[in-house]
Design a protein around this nucleic acid. Structure first.
Lengths: 384, 384
DNA sequence: CGAATTAGTACGGTGAATGAACAAACATCC
DNA sequence: GGATGTTTGTTCATTCACCGTACTAATTCG
């Protein structure tokens, strides 16, 4: 079990695996870096580092750069993650479109494609054909092997990778889509919840230095929160953690489809905000807000206030020092942000309110997270 | 860092420590158990188990029982945690009293003392003298060594053991009290937040089989939640996690001392409930409720409703399958429980509402957790 | 050109787990 | 009662991986 992390016996192999991962983590965060420097900062012996590096060079996870020249002494041989090593593939399915992206071992996005497609109304096979074609064109004539494929889905994904429920993408529930995709691509497919993957992308590529604990709020129709604790995405015991949309912000408010009353989603979900603002969609919302329409600004203000209340509760409960607004809220940050900020200042963390940040990643966050997850897990547990 | 748990290089010693802890965990949960059985269920070799057990017998953490007799074959030598091994000491300081308890390696409570004492208004030295005397009398003429002392405090305790703030126990803030106590007792003292320790006690001794994820709500003046995830108490990045008292249940309600409006504490905190019910304290509350006084029942109903709303939000966010009512709420469970239950059924976890349990542990939960923490950490990381 | 300095490797030593073989203790069957 | 089979626990040689030391390599500086 991962939380306790000590269910299996340890042996020499365990030690080796641990140290390989440790070394890769150091290289990843400090590259380019020499063997000597790695030894110094990890605490491993230079001899051990040499041995580990040799194995990783052979496995194509590291590459050696031409010796640079520094001060006195023999020049170091810098190492870094192998840019020609295994690739990570990401696929994101949404009701209205498909995204594919490819990242290298360092997480750099090598290619990204987006196609508008009525996924919800299409036959899964048709969609998978399209996805497979996109993958081929996205990868190009790459000679590099693909380590695996992360699959971002708008629904609940169990720990074993089964899509348990997906209100906005019925017909994809079950284990079939991932299996079919794996078959076509010829690589293992790892399905995961898109909000959690987006939070991971935010953690790894958001550019918030050393921010390892935060709440990543991504609001579309529903409102989900990706919870990042200790540099890891927290999914909860049942994989459903982060259901922020049904926190109560108005105990005697209107009935929600979840059965409760006054849920956040009814005030701050995009559907509700658009209705209240009298615009058709998020694009319209942005346009109307930019034009200064009072009705729109009112709706956004109400949404921000409710969101602030709900987020303050979550922040108090989890003690996270930062909140990142992503998804639609990132685009609406100019108008929503200050209101949320004010509520947080009022209510959160007993006088130590959290940072409030806007996500610099666009709507491609989830795919990128999906692709990056593949290479990250390769680095965390390198095959022998 | 503990969450990633892989910042240090691993070596032979790491493996040994891991396997010692693994073995102890198996013994703890399955005792009495033979070497052969341990080997079978842990996956370690019988030879390795023998070697580990030898070391643990020498270290007085395990003891060997007289060989039992079973079916065919050589009878096994059952092992269990050494009942004559190191003891864990627990001390709990509250504004109005002191508790001391002693547990053996298996966590069984060997002795428990409670003294009424105006800790808040007394000189720390006086209190420490009283505590030291209680410890001596609680331990008795025990020949067994004391491994350490857990100290439960009603305030925020940083990761390094410093009491950072304690609204109800000023004068104890800082590092001095733990140090002074360690000096008098001659054993290391480990301060921790009392709500978190109570949650740990609930986890270990609550008798909720295999329940490794839950929210333990302990309401007194403030309302705190101990969060248990994956069989471990989650303290949050800054150690302040579980601040449930200031979740908003009435956005436009009265001002709270925290700066917000309509915080849970203002409706469901004991001070508020007592005031609304027109009784002086929790004892009065219980008596009046048992007598069926309408005003009291009203107050409890309102408290339960607000608590249910707040807890539902937390449950949605964390996806925990159970909620345990502890502290004052456990005593009031008969009246508050059903109301909370109804709110949870309405609002929590998208149709999969959590279990609602009452804590069987009394107000001694925190001390017991403090004492048990000492032995648990001894088992998790046995000294060589 | 030699001394100093830093990088990386080679090699024997050590701690710990492994697998197989063996000794111990008991039940059962003839 | 003794042979047999079964299960337990230990002993021993082997292997794996890290460690410390000693050594070679490559460059700067005087």
């Amino acid at each position: 079990m991962s939380p306790r992390g000590c269910g299996a016996p340890a042996g020499a192999g365990t030690v080796r695996a641990h140290n390989l991962a440790l070394l890769l983590e150091h290289v990843r965060t400090r590259e380019p870096v020499s063997r000597a420097r790695i030894a110094e900062s990890t605490g491993l012996t230079r001899a051990t580092v040499s041995s580990l590096v040799e194995e990783l060079l052979a496995g194509a996870l590291l590459e050696e750069l031409p010796a640079g020249r520094g001060g006195a002494g023999r020049p170091a041989n810098p190492l870094r993650l192998n840019r020609s090593g295994p690739l990570g593939l990401g696929v994101a399915l949404d009701p209205d479109g498909v995204r594919v992206c490819v990242v290298d071992l360092a997480g750099a996005e090598l290619a990204h494609e987006h196609a508008i497609l009525d996924v919800a109304a299409s036959d899964p096979d048709t969609v998978l054909d399209a996805v497979a074609a996109m993958v081929v064109s996205t990868l190009g004539p790459a000679a590099q092997p693909v380590a695996g494929c992360g699959l971002a889905l708008p629904g609940l994904v169990a720990a074993d990778g089964v899509l348990t429920s997906a209100p906005n993408l019925p017909g994809w529930v079950g284990t079939a889509p991932a299996a079919a995709l794996a078959q076509r691509l010829g690589v293992p497919v790892r399905p995961d919840n898109e909000a959690d993957l987006a939070a991971g992308a935010e953690l790894w590529f958001g550019g918030h230095d050393d921010l390892a604990d935060f709440l990543h709020v991504s609001g579309e129709i529903g409102i989900g929160a990706g919870i990042v604790l200790g540099g890891r995405v927290f999914r909860g015991p049942g994989g459903r953690a982060g259901e922020l949309g049904h926190v109560v912000v108005d105990p005697d408010g209107p009935r929600c489809r979840c059965g409760g009353r006054g849920c956040l989603e009814l005030v701050a979900g995009m559907r509700a905000v658009c209705a209240r603002a009298g615009v058709p969609d998020t694009d319209g919302l942005v346009a109307a807000a930019a034009a200064g329409r009072a009705r729109t600004l009112d709706a956004l203000g109400a949404a921000g206030r409710a969101l602030g209340i709900a987020v303050a509760g979550a922040v108090n409960l989890l003690d996270v020092p930062a909140v990142v607004l992503g998804g639609a809220y990132a685009r609406l940050g100019v108008w929503v942000g200050p209101v949320v900020r004010a509520e947080l200042d009022d209510r959160a963390r007993g006088g130590r309110p959290p940072q409030l940040l806007l996500s610099p990643l666009g709507s491609g966050a989830a795919v990128r997270g999906a692709a990056a997850t593949v290479v990250r897990s390769l680095l965390a547990d390198p095959p022998r």
